[in-house]
Design a protein around this nucleic acid. Structure first.
Lengths: 252, 252
DNA sequence: GAGCATTTGTGCGTATGTATC
DNA sequence: TGATACATACGCACAAATGCT
């Protein structure tokens, strides 16, 4: 098939080049990506249903799904069963510095922030955590696994360790208050500052991807940080994984 | 072939479980990854040749190559034609803050730093660069494409823009001096500081991967920063891509 | 510079086990 | 039960890059 170009095209409908080297789903994905990039489909907006897109491009719904899967893989859209497919919002600026506080950061960006406790345990510190907290390996610590959301969208997941016995029962306080800052106040820590911050990047494992509602392999910003109380004592070692598709760190 | 297990195995040779669900190349990759992780194969050291590994594990060289490809994909090893396959060094700590300087950072980590100019042009600023430099879009700028290495290993690649006409001829100075800091001195800028730093993460495109000698899709830390001179004038907008496998950002 | 050994990179053909239709 | 497709694994040969003399 050399050329079967259509001369009678409806205004906004792009004609698909069938039988060429380009697969149909790729052309559809590119067309939608263009519309997202140009702002024709604005951030946060809902895409037409798969059926509607199938009709518009004159293909089977499976083909549209293939295209949408490719866009989801690139982090441009996100599909939720029963709700629809949505254009991902632009990246939230997330300031990091001496006084980083998650809830403040997110609400500054005009979104609702929530921290959810997934699991907690009092266990002996692994070598890495022990070094970060400045205690002997095997010293008991509270370890918490959390997920943070902005407007319902998972933004980050963190593994937080605090030394025992000082912070015995911290997990319950965090689960109740939904904020590290407020839970610290409950334990008499009125203020705390960032001692060190290390930033790496890697692809999401399947489990991490599931927790963050991402495609596996999508880029994560891995931030390891240590917080100290006003007396300089190390009170918190955190390893946070941020979905790089949804957020950008801003050094301040 | 149900079972052809060898009863006479040389001491340190792990027998591969053939015919089970585990593929041979995956077992070999796991075994080598363990040895790297445990330090039995130290960072920077050369692995046995593919032929030697094939003999050791009792498989074809192709099977070993498959295993090594998997390790290279994970960033654990790196192969160079004619030289051999080497265990990747651990991640270099790279401090970022108000006074970030590449050469200082790397040499502080005990490595030899080098900046190489790949390309340069005087072109109108794209909207993003214009905003970063605080000039009107289309204003002419010097744009340079660079690659930085530590001990010969590519660490980062950057796209650096400086406003014209103030920095006309900057690229030649940089190519000659191999350092932004020294080239700035040549233009009468004795000092400069970081105005803003934004950090994201994504997978390497094939071109970026080629420039950094990485597998495509490997994680990159994308750092966009703006530098100002002592009078507060914006003099440099940089978008740097760091190979996250080789480096870790440290906020200071 | 030429020449050589070493080592990784690549191509092709073949066989086998395991799904899927 | 075939037919087909795919990933795995093997064997051989040669190309290309590196390091050394």
């Amino acid at each position: 098939m050399t050329d079967a170009r259509d001369t009678s095209v409806t205004p906004s409908d792009p004609p698909l080049l069938r039988g060429a080297g380009l697969t149909a789903w790729r052309q559809i994905a590119d067309a939608l990506a263009d519309e997202i990039g140009s702002g024709a489909l604005s951030a946060g907006s809902q895409l037409p249903t798969e059926a509607a897109l199938a009709a518009r491009f004159g293909v089977n719904r499976h083909t549209v799904r293939r295209a949408l899967a490719a866009l989801a893989e690139r982090g441009l859209v996100r599909a939720t069963q029963g709700r629809g497919t949505f254009v991902e919002r632009g990246q939230i600026p997330y300031p990091i510095g001496r006084r980083t506080r998650f809830s403040e950061n997110i609400s500054r960006a005009g979104r609702e922030a929530r921290g959810e406790l997934i699991a907690a345990a009092e266990i002996p510190a692994d070598p890495e955590t022990a070094e970060a907290l400045g205690v002997a390996p095997g010293t008991p610590v509270v370890e918490m696994l959390t997920v943070h959301r902005a407007d319902g969208t998972p933004i980050s997941t963190a593994r937080i360790a605090l030394p025992l016995p000082r912070f015995s029962g911290f997990a319950a306080a965090y689960a109740r208050l939904g904020s590290i800052t407020r839970a610290f106040k409950d334990f008499g820590v009125e203020d705390y500052t960032r001692l060190s911050t290390r930033i790496g990047a890697r692809g999401a494992t399947p489990e991490e991807a599931a927790r963050l509602d991402l495609a596996p392999g999508r880029p994560l910003l891995a931030v390891a940080s240590v917080n100290v109380d006003p007396e300089g004592r190390r009170i918190e070692a955190t390893r946070t994984l941020f979905a790089a598709d949804r957020l950008e760190l801003v050094v301040e």
